[in-house]
């Protein structure tokens, strides 16, 4: 059968006719099982997608923001630190690829340390290194060259271009995103398995219907169609309910600003909501394929 014929037969299978659908009596157990499974799986899929897309956003944000900045830490004895900060700023001003550099104020340093030491830390009286925030141009600077100059002119300076810790965090976020999509695929697989079992139960319960339909000249595709349409619609209905409920739950999630904003913005935003709108369609496609395969397999055994 050519691809066009396959598509044509699949469309005809979905279109069907109401009389054919009436030939299969409604079976409460398999109907409830399919709707519940689809709703539950869609509910889980939305949460997994939300987490996965959030992880993706975090990875992108870290990549974009942190890749363009670096930090210079100045550690020096009392009395020398201000001079070294000024020297470092002079070096940075004349370094190609550095768009800007500024020393963090005491308030900013206090805010950075507040999560660990509390808000009343006497920064001024403690031997805390001074931090200089460096903003890079698009092309960036020559890290090796800058380190060499700093070593010569500012002995207490330590350049951190964030690469050391940014890469594993971005990698972790990307893995989280990949795991999320893998989980969605697993959910689709589990849905297919459950719907296949429900379809097989329905087919077994309707052996008499199949016998009669065959007796009056029904083709396998016609008989299968009555089951396929029913299960596809149930999966669509169940997954729509699941998506609606979980969509509201995700929308109502509180804003999280934990550990420096790592989990900030968890949930869905903008066009990402379109992803969850695709879940009922995906569930219907899964149900269609699973039921059709189960029906044709069962009808093949009945021949």
């Amino acid at each position: 059968m050519s691809l066009r014929e396959r598509i044509g037969s699949s469309v005809a299978l979905l279109a069907g006719d109401k009389q054919a659908d009436r030939a299969v009596p409604p079976t409460g157990f398999t109907a409830r099982l399919t709707v519940f499974t689809s709703a539950a799986m869609a509910f889980l899929a939305v949460f997994v997608l939300a987490l996965s897309l959030t992880a993706g956003r975090v990875a992108d944000r870290w990549t974009e923001q942190l890749a363009q900045t670096s930090t210079l830490r100045i550690s020096a004895p009392d009395g020398q630190i201000d001079a070294q900060v000024r020297a470092a700023l002079r070096v940075l001003e004349t370094t190609p690829g550095v768009a800007g550099a500024r020393a963090l104020s005491d308030e900013e340093q206090r805010a950075l340390l507040a999560p660990w030491f509390g808000p009343d830390l006497p920064v001024e009286s403690l031997p805390i290194p001074r931090l200089i925030e460096i903003t890079e141009t698009d092309g960036g600077y020559d890290t090796t060259g800058l380190r060499a100059r700093l070593q010569a002119e500012v002995p207490g300076a330590l350049l951190d271009d964030h690469a050391r810790w940014r890469a594993p965090l971005v990698k972790a976020a990307e893995r989280l995103r990949a795991l999320g999509f893998a989980a969605v695929i697993l959910i689709a697989g589990a849905t297919a398995a459950m719907i296949t079992l429900a379809a097989q139960a329905a087919l077994a319960a309707n052996a008499q219907v199949i016998r009669v339909m065959r007796l009056v000249g029904a083709k396998d595709s016609y008989i299968a169609g009555a089951f396929v349409r029913r299960f596809t619609l149930r999966a669509f209905f169940g997954s729509t309910v699941g998506v609606a409920v979980s969509g509201v739950a995700v929308w109502l999630l509180p804003e999280l600003d934990v550990a420096g904003g790592i989990l900030e913005g968890i949930g869905l935003s903008g066009a990402e909501w379109l992803w969850i709108a695709a879940i009922p369609i995906l569930a219907s496609v899964v149900a269609f394929a699973a039921t059709r395969a189960a029906a044709l397999r069962t009808l093949g055994r009945h021949s």
Binding site: D17, Q19, A20, A23, Q208, V212, Y222
Partner: peptide, 17 residues
């Protein structure tokens, strides 16, 4: 027969199919 359908629909089943 299909016991959940009335006789008229059972008789017409070959036409439907």
């Amino acid at each position: 027969f299909l016991d959940h359908l009335p006789i008229s629909e059972n008789v017409a089943l070959p036409l439907t199919v």
